[in-house]
Design a protein around this nucleic acid. Structure first.
Lengths: 138, 138
DNA sequence: CTGCATCCGCAATGATACTG
DNA sequence: CAGTATCATTGCGGATGCAG
């Protein structure tokens, strides 16, 4: 599986031998779709601050449903970005943490979030401006 | 509007006076949801390589439908990340470009994509490993 | 406590056709 | 060329119940 499209030539031939997210059927693209979803970034960031248990994580990521948290964690684990360790205490204890592989991605995610948190005012201003122009039938 | 939740204290009091993506009702969170979708990153990266027209852009971002492209571009424009300029030639000519504000975000996006394109092999290996373990009823 | 299974409504997405 | 409008469909994501 996934033989052909990895390192597909086509739009840029600088380095070759790496995935091409711009090809719809490249595994890289599917990976991007998985990590660029509503919850992955937030979860990764929280996990980056240290190992944490399911419910604690659920509290930190405000608004996430149990289902989505569970589902996203499984996806991240499958991709090797997150590790899951079970300690067989009386009521079982499950802890999640970022893997070394996941840390690399986490850095970019963090940058994205930092950008969002600091540039929000400018974005809000742009929005207001856009909406005002729209209302002017302009 | 959006009075309370911006710069909500609660999980970290290091700097204060910036948004908190972890609060579900913070504008920052909504912004994150908008930019962390299936297409925004890809579109921003292509735009970062220089101004480009609608159909050319559609070709570069393989698999995107006109609707989603149009919709995502409008959203990015509203947030002030992308500029749209119309030249009234015979068949009208519309060109899109990244704004200075958008460039900051683009950098993070690019890092994310670079990570995905280069780390794909490790991720694929992790996946295979995970799936194998699952099949072992383990 | 952790988290999987099921049902289900609704919003996001895609294909198609049509307009300036 | 650059979209908008409409329709059909999918699957996200929430609520609830149950299991290890």
């Amino acid at each position: 599986m996934q033989d052909g499209t990895f390192s597909t030539p086509g739009h840029s031939d600088e380095t070759a031998m790496r995935g091409d997210v711009f090809a719809a059927d490249c595994p890289t693209r599917q990976l991007l779709d998985r990590i660029a979803d509503k919850w992955s970034a937030l979860i990764l960031i929280v996990l980056g601050q240290g190992p944490i248990r399911f419910n604690a994580l659920k509290q930190r990521v405000d608004g996430v449903s149990q289902k989505m948290l569970s589902q996203t964690l499984k996806s991240l684990e499958r991709d090797g970005l997150v590790s899951r360790s079970v300690v067989a205490t009386v009521p079982v204890t499950v802890t999640y943490a970022v893997t070394p592989l996941g840390r690399g991605l986490m850095a970019s995610m963090q940058a994205m979030i930092d950008w969002a948190e600091t540039r929000m005012p400018e974005v809000a201003a742009a929005q207001a401006d856009y909406d005002r122009r729209s209302r002017e039938t302009h």
